[in-house]
């Protein structure tokens, strides 16, 4: 049980970066961008390919994010310049990326142009590089000692991944919070909110949309690159349904933590991603559910997260009206007594 939840937190905090990307398009830009399913894999494929070819994991990861940025920008160009509907632009880019991702991974072999997956079992990664340094600190021993004392049987291999990912994800969150408050950030938000208005204040909404989509998919690809290094493989199918997972994270987080300010919302999105993973892990502990049911469970979680706030609001309104009625009845009664 502890292992399952620990693993979910580890994964959740990595997927949270992808969810932040989805937040930028769906919420800030109000652009339903489906590029995500493809660009997530582009990130994974670029990082896995470069690492396999012997590049430094840090450089490989940065290049992966840049590849995602490029993919998102092309979706933006399709929408703003070629005037293709936003959903369709994303879908077109997504399927185009499927082939491109095969080609990227194909760079690691000579026998074919495309390749559907790359194992990274024995390769360096950001995480192996970090764990060398982390191991020397002896923090794992201390934490795991504590856990054993508390009676937990299976202690995690390392706390390093969770640690470094919390730092990285929160660093991205703070930069994003800051960015959305700069002049350019405000203009991007206004583009999603009221395009006509921001154009009348001399902003080029086309450029801003392209920039927003680029940033979003850059984060998605970064998340993909990290997941590939975390899971030690890249696969052309690993992005299927990613957009729904991203949305699930955003919706769950917003439902629980609210959207009062930007800083609050990005916080909500990160924890939404973690909570989603935990719920999924718990659901999979149920006897008759199988890993193949994951997508179905995801869909159900999203539906629940969407329905609950509406139900809660309805319930609140109902009890408010009931209270007013009761008060009114009491007042009428007293009035009657007095006149009698």
């Amino acid at each position: 049980m502890f292992t399952a939840i620990f693993g979910s937190v580890e994964q959740g905090i990595i997927y949270a970066i992808m969810a932040l990307g989805v937040y930028i398009t769906f919420r800030v830009l109000d652009f339903p961008d489906l590029t995500v399913d493809g660009s997530f894999v582009t990130g994974a494929a670029t990082a896995a390919t470069m690492i396999t070819l012997g590049y430094n994991p840090i450089i490989s990861t940065i290049c992966a994010a840049l590849a995602g940025f490029a993919a998102g920008s092309i979706t933006g160009l399709l929408h703003t310049k070629a005037k293709i509907n936003s959903l369709l632009s994303g879908i077109l880019m997504m399927i185009a990326l499927y082939s491109i991702n095969l080609r990227i991974m194909g760079l690691t072999i000579d026998t074919a142009v495309g390749r559907p997956n790359i194992p990274l079992a024995n390769s360096d990664s950001l995480f192996t590089a970090f764990s060398e340094f982390w191991g020397k600190l002896g923090i794992d021993k201390a934490f795991n000692g504590m856990l054993s004392n508390m009676g937990v049987e299976h202690v995690p291999n390392t706390w390093g991944t969770v640690f470094i990912m919390f730092i990285l994800t929160f660093a991205i969150k703070f930069v994003l919070d800051w960015f959305l408050k700069t002049e350019i950030g405000l203009a991007i938000r206004a583009t999603g909110d009221n395009g006509k208005m921001i154009r009348s204040f001399s902003a080029n909404t086309d450029t801003l949309t392209i920039l927003g989509l680029g940033l979003s998919n850059g984060l998605v690809a970064l998340s993909g690159a990290l997941i590939a290094q975390y899971g030690k493989f890249a696969d052309v199918g690993m992005g299927i349904g990613m957009i729904v997972i991203g949305l699930a994270s955003v919706i769950i987080g917003e439902a629980i933590f609210g959207t009062k300010t930007i800083a609050r919302t990005t916080f909500a999105v990160i924890f939404g991603a973690i909570i989603y993973r935990i719920v999924l892990a718990l659901a999979l502990q149920v006897e008759f559910l199988d890993t193949g049911d994951m997508k179905l469970i995801t869909a159900v979680i999203v539906v629940i997260a969407l329905v609950i706030p509406t139900l809660r609001a309805k319930q609140k309104e109902k009890s408010r009206i009931a209270k007013r009625r009761a008060e009114h009845a009491r007042a009428v009664k007293q009035e009657g007594k007095r006149s009698a």
Binding site: W178, F179, K181, T182, E183, I184, G185, L186, A187, R189, A190, I198, F201, S202, A203
Partner: peptide, 19 residues
């Protein structure tokens, strides 16, 4: 924030904090 958008109408928008 709305006023900040209006404020930067006639200059290039940068990475400066809006408000």
């Amino acid at each position: 924030e709305n006023l900040a958008i209006a404020y930067s109408r006639n200059q290039k928008r940068t990475l400066r904090i809006g408000v």
